[in-house]
Design a protein around this nucleic acid. Structure first.
Length: 339
DNA sequence: AAACAGTGCAACCGCTCTGAC
DNA sequence: TGTCAGAGCGGTTGCACTGTT
């Protein structure tokens, strides 16, 4: 629409800011306040365009900017908010005092996104995806066999799982032991995602969480993987001892339920989750309603994160990231605020 | 020790959207 | 209603730092 460029490029400096430029900008804003970015460079004696000044101020020089590594809580909050808001970095930044949208975006792209991908979680949808996992490492795991894959079937992308099954079978497993679910064309019948109402974002989100929790158990340590996915216990009563977190409202059939040992990391994770829920009514039943009943006055709950606050190595964080994917969203949270 | 590759981050670009006038 | 400035966003670049060979 014939709009003039934001600044005259001729004679304007680009690139890293010098301390002198920073001082000029800070002193000018302290004296006159932020705003009028177009005229600010001239008034402040800066050879920069207004946009560059605005970005420098908002992303770096603002006195309330918090520098340094993201804490565990911040990281958790980013993931939680991103699952709800998507790439609305400014909206996310508004919930993280001292952090800028640009900083959060960079941190997401360089750290969180990569880590979610390594965990086999789609950073866009926050859904677990086996095709994003390092399948080769899974397949070389001594714990991998048909039984283990059977246990994974409720959690993973069916097509990817079928590929895994094919690979395992080709490695010498007896295909005669393949259950009916793994026969050709059967996976489409257990496509979990198809059971989620396509427009029910909340349901899908929490559905993703439950899958993410399980995926994290798989990914975080071989021992947990073994605990959760070694040959099935024959005691069917285990199902009854499980919280119904994974299944409520999702129409999982009994056949699709993972058979988890009572003392598995998965189970413990579930229990800790229900224990930390403000709506916990001492029942192990977990429904979306209970998740949504967290009071608005409290920020997104940071469950059991204390040992890793502002510390801990990357591996620790990864092994603990079941919490990262655990959401407690206040029922009265007005999502319109974000939009 | 040097060369190289990988990584993280600040900063920029180009575009769209929003609200004030 | 059109124009404009500011804000926001996704993508990208350049450079410093670090780890590996």
């Amino acid at each position: 629409m014939g709009r003039s460029p934001c600044c005259d490029k001729n004679g304007l400096k680009k690139g890293p800011w010098t301390p002198e430029e920073d001082m000029k900008l800070i002193q000018h804003i302290e004296a006159h306040g932020a705003g009028n970015w177009r005229s600010l460079p001239k008034n402040a004696g800066l050879q920069r365009c207004g946009k560059s000044c605005r970005l420098r101020w908002t992303n770096y020089l603002r006195p309330d900017i918090k520098r340094g590594r993201f804490s565990f809580e911040e990281e958790e909050t980013i993931i939680q908010l991103h699952s709800v808001l998507g790439n609305k970095w400014s909206a996310i930044a508004a919930r993280l005092p001292g952090r800028t949208d640009n900083e959060i975006k960079n941190y997401w792209n360089t750290h969180i996104r990569k880590r979610l991908l390594r965990m086999g979680i789609d950073p866009v949808t926050h859904a677990p995806r086996l095709d994003l996992l390092d399948l080769s490492s899974l397949l070389t795991s001594p714990q991998l066999n048909i039984s283990n894959l059977l246990r994974l079937q409720t959690l993973l992308n069916p097509e990817a799982l079928r590929l895994a099954m094919t690979l395992v079978s080709s490695n010498g497993s007896d295909q005669a032991h393949l259950p009916i679910q793994f026969q050709p064309n059967h996976f489409q019948n257990i496509n979990i995602d198809q059971q989620i109402p396509p427009n029910n974002i909340n349901a899908a989100s929490f559905h993703n969480q439950s899958q993410s929790l399980a995926m994290d158990s798989i990914n975080s340590s071989p021992q947990i993987f073994q605990d959760n996915f070694m040959p099935p216990a024959t005691n069917a009563s285990h199902h009854q001892s499980l919280p119904s977190f994974c299944y409520d409202g999702l129409s999982f059939s009994d056949q699709m339920r993972p058979d988890l040992s009572e003392n598995s990391g998965f189970d413990q994770s579930m229990n800790s989750n229900s224990n930390s829920s403000s709506s916990n009514n001492n029942s192990q039943n977990f429904s979306f309603d209970s998740v949504l009943s967290t009071p608005l006055s409290s920020p997104p709950t940071l469950n059991s994160a204390a040992p890793f606050i502002n510390g801990g190595v990357e591996e620790e964080r990864e092994s603990f990231c079941s919490n990262l994917l655990r959401f407690e969203i206040p029922e009265s949270l007005d999502f319109d605020d974000f939009m």
